[in-house]
Design a protein around this nucleic acid. Structure first.
Length: 800
RNA sequence: GCGGAUAUGGCGGAAUUGGCAGACGCGCUAGAUUCAGGUUCUAGUCGGGGCAACUCGGUGAAGGUUCAAGUCCUUUUAUCCGCACCA
């Protein structure tokens, strides 16, 4: 047979679709497998080669699971709210609804051309009213449970475009659109109180199967730190300035304090601070920097010393100066710090620049040279002197602070509450009404979905508010509580909202009564295996775990964690080894490859390319290798006979079934395919194989190259789909070798190999080795110091 | 800066997790098939030395642990990813 992909691929795609071959079954007595891949943003550019890799992994696992008899749910939907579609609408006046529908249609068609076994009957679209109704519903549940609040924050704002910018769009402090200076502006923002779930999100990690690096990234992102809040009296003892520190034990080494430039206490003491003009000057400079820059560029510390405003060290009563500096962030801790220059690098650098004293309180370094951040004996620290264990000295200091009422133990998280709104059109409207009498009032549940009004001008409003603010018919409404005139919130939710619970909707996508039927949730959840990009490991993964955990806490879902197992694929880089991007011109269009080589070749190549979890550059020549491989597979039909295989080949088949079976589970697709290539080389050497062996071969290859394998299956006279036929099994007794080859080393250098029976004992193996004619002369007359034998692997003789 | 990762032939990558480095594929060389290009087949392909058997060296760099290190430890360099309004 020839590999006629142009005809066989559409043929099998149509047959699968007509038979709904990959539709998840309703039989809940069967073992289930829920495979989830991150749903795409349906951009106008269509499918990217990265999507193919992201989906091909669990595509193979899902296909294997079906053959193993599982009831498999492998869905795909669309995360369609977002800026690119909105910007496209601003530019072209094509409504986002129209553009989104068009893009989804294109994307779906492209996916089908790859032969992915998605259950298209379960597809969803986050911008569908029947979907975002439930996104709004969950938001209101959070509102009801005190997890939604409003507060001020600083945002990047371009005064010329009058628009709020992301950090990315304001890099270098310049507006990406008009290049004018970006300023920091205070703005009312919606927040979700995710910090309340910080501990639950940390604890939940113990019960799930994520790779350690993903867990570590989440732990660091949450950034829990144990420390203490300490009150310093300022301005002559009238008021307290509270700081947060993880090292209260170094309190005796505090020689100054630093406040964030935006710290509200500064304004209260305007009249006392004699150089307040300098403070305002400095604030203006800082307002031009994004927080990102402030934390990033800390090479050169800047700041202003406050005149007429000092603090008192609460443990030794010493008067210390207070500075403002932008290396202290208002958003972390209390917005003020105690500085211990001897033992903190940033404080040290600042102290050197501003000529403040450095007092050593932990022995071990030379504080005249650099800050010492290690452990050591406490000195110059009153009642802590002589303690050598950090834990003990922290505990003792916290005890002292609590006793004296000047501080208390506390916990801080790096993770902040989640800023949950955008001033954009193309997002879920936040279902809240502002009533002059009743305050913030939720839209009643029976009025959901709160639909986006149909508009044709998508430019953001003056001052950066959402385009919705201009639509009077949307904004003006009556308060559901008092019936008086009220105004709707015009911000929309961030694009993270829809993706925070989408995996629940796949289970029951058309339910109008609930976000999903509880019985279906109990059967399908949790997701058994979730694969996606490393870049989503912190945000999306944490956000969706938060939402799910909340739903669990209010009794809406059956388990506390949504994903049992998480993996992440690596990027496909351009042929030049750089990240693919339009501007570099190194983008590979997957459909070009499908046209030239077929979907089976593309799928096979992408998985053969290298370690699935690592990044690898695209190489067109590698594609040809996979084409050659599939052509050789097709040609196997010409030599398969009823009988005539060899015992050696039979053994090779058992080994390959074992290897492919386990490699797929470990996502080692490249070595699984290498094993199949090795096997086809063995078949070529043998020159023959049986029809049953060919069936085994195509069953193993079917998850990778399903169209060709189905075609061969049919040509062998089989009815039904190979894709739904049983997965091959192997016989463990046929896999073990009776004889093994053992490497023989003298003093760690390879000198020979010997073949011994697999169950030989150490004495007989060593006897064989010593008498071997390559080894005997080398140990002749030498003193044998040691003989090491690792069964089945190696013998090492140490001689002198 | 902080956090996460990576580094192995000409190239993509393997290495049973501390046990024969370079599986498999690409590319390349030689030969065969073909009118020719492509395809297909056979042999070879980490580097140095040797006709060969063989031998010496070799996993970004420098140290260390071990009978044994690509794998573990310390230091270091380079590259990639994330850092909160990009999706």
């Amino acid at each position: 047979m020839k590999h006629d992909f142009k005809n066989i691929e559409p043929k099998w795609q149509q047959r699968w679709e007509a038979a709904e071959a990959f539709r998840a079954g309703e039989d809940r007595s069967k073992k289930k497998f829920y495979a989830l891949v991150e749903f795409p943003y349906p951009s106008g550019a269509g499918m990217h080669i990265g999507h193919v890799k992201a989906y091909a992994g669990l595509e193979v696992v899902s296909r294997k699971r079906r053959m193993e008899g599982y009831n498999v749910l492998f869905p795909l939907g669309f995360d369609a709210f977002g800026l690119p579609t909105e910007n496209y609408a601003i530019k072209t006046h094509v409504h986002p609804r129209v553009a989104t529908d068009r893009n989804i249609e294109k994307f779906t068609m492209q996916m089908k051309k790859l032969g992915f076994s998605f259950d298209w009957s379960k597809t969803i679209d986050t911008t569908d009213e029947n979907y975002y109704k439930w996104t709004q519903w969950i938001f209101l549940k959070m509102f009801e449970n005190g997890l939604v609040f409003r507060d001020k924050t600083l945002v990047n704002y371009c005064p010329s475009c009058k628009v709020v910018l992301s950090n990315e769009d304001s890099q270098g402090g310049k507006c990406d659109i008009c290049k004018s200076d970006v300023i920091q502006k205070s703005k009312d923002v919606w927040y979700l109180r995710i910090t309340e779930y910080a501990d639950k999100l940390l604890e939940g990690l113990d019960s799930v199967d994520y790779p350690q690096n993903i867990k570590t990234q989440q732990i660091n992102w949450i950034g829990k730190s144990q420390g203490a809040f300490v009150d310093f009296s300022v301005a002559g003892g009238k008021e307290k300035l509270t700081i947060y520190t993880t090292r209260p034990d170094t309190l005796f080494g505090v020689t100054f304090m630093v406040m964030a430039p935006e710290h509200p206490m500064l304004d209260k003491y305007k009249d006392i601070i004699t150089n307040f003009d300098r403070v305002e000057e400095y604030r203006a400079i800082c307002a031009k920097k994004t927080e990102f820059e402030r934390t990033q560029v800390n090479k050169d510390k800047t700041g202003v010393k406050l005149e007429g405003f000092t603090a008192k060290n609460p443990v030794n009563g010493k008067e210390i100066p207070v500075f403002i500096s932008d290396y202290v962030m208002m958003g972390y801790g209390t917005g003020a710090i105690m500085a211990v220059p001897a033992h903190d690098e940033r404080d040290y650098e600042f102290a050197r620049k501003f000529g403040v004293d450095v007092i050593e309180v932990v022995k071990g370094g030379d504080v005249s040279e650099a800050a010492y951040t290690g452990d050591g004996e406490m000195v110059n620290s009153g009642f802590l002197d002589g303690l050598t264990n950090k834990k003990d000295s922290i505990a003792k200091m916290v005890e002292y602070l609590e006793e004296k009422g000047i501080g208390k133990a506390g916990v801080q998280y790096k993770m902040k509450d989640w800023a949950f709104n955008r001033q954009r059109y193309w997002g879920e409207p936040i279902p809240i009404i502002h009533c002059p009498n009743c305050g913030m009032v939720p839209v009643p549940y029976d009025e959901l979905p709160l639909k986006l009004p149909n508009i044709d001008k998508f430019e953001p409003g003056e001052g950066g508010e959402s385009p919705l603010a201009k639509i009077d018919s949307f904004v003006n409404c009556t308060c559901p509580k008092c019936g008086g005139a009220a105004k709707r919130e015009t911000d929309t939710m961030p694009q993270w909202a829809g993706s925070s619970w989408y995996f629940l909707r796949y289970v029951d996508p058309n339910n109008n009564e609930r976000f999903a039927d509880p019985e279906r949730l109990r059967y399908w959840m949790p997701v058994d295996w979730y694969n996606g990009g490393m870049e989503h490991v912190t945000r999306h993964l944490i956000y969706s775990r938060f939402w799910y955990r909340f739903l669990y806490d209010i009794g809406e879902v059956p388990f506390p964690e949504p994903y049992l197992k998480r993996t992440a694929q690596g990027l496909i880089l351009g042929p030049d080894g750089e990240k693919m991007s339009k501007s570099r011109g190194n983008v590979i269009d997957p459909l070009d490859i499908v046209d030239a080589y077929g979907a089976d070749v593309l799928r096979t190549y992408i998985l053969f390319l290298g370690d699935y979890t690592a990044s690898a550059p695209w190489a067109e020549n590698g594609v040809k290798g996979c084409r050659r491989f599939l052509e050789r597979v097709a040609a196997l039909t010409d030599i398969a006979k009823g009988k005539g295989s060899t015992p050696a080949l039979e053994k090779q088949f058992h080994k390959t079934v074992k290897k492919v079976t386990s490699d797929i589970e470990e996502m080692k697709f490249n070595t699984a395919l290498a094993a199949l290539m090795t096997l086809i080389n063995d078949i070529s050497d043998a020159g023959t194989l049986t029809v049953d062996e060919l069936k085994t071969f195509i069953a193993l290859l079917c998850p990778f190259a399903p169209h060709l394998c189905e075609e061969i299956w049919e040509s062998l006279g089989e009815k039904g789909f190979l894709s739904l036929s049983p997965w091959p099994v192997y016989d463990e007794s046929k896999v073990v070798d009776a004889e093994v080859e053992i490497a023989v080393q003298i003093n760690g250098k390879l000198r020979a190999t010997v073949t011994v029976s697999a169950d030989a004992d150490k004495a007989s193996v060593l006897e064989t080795v010593r008498s071997c004619d390559k080894i005997a002369p080398l140990i002749e007359g030498k003193q044998i110091v040691k003989e090491i034998y690792i069964p089945g692997k190696i013998v090492n003789i140490v001689v002198r």
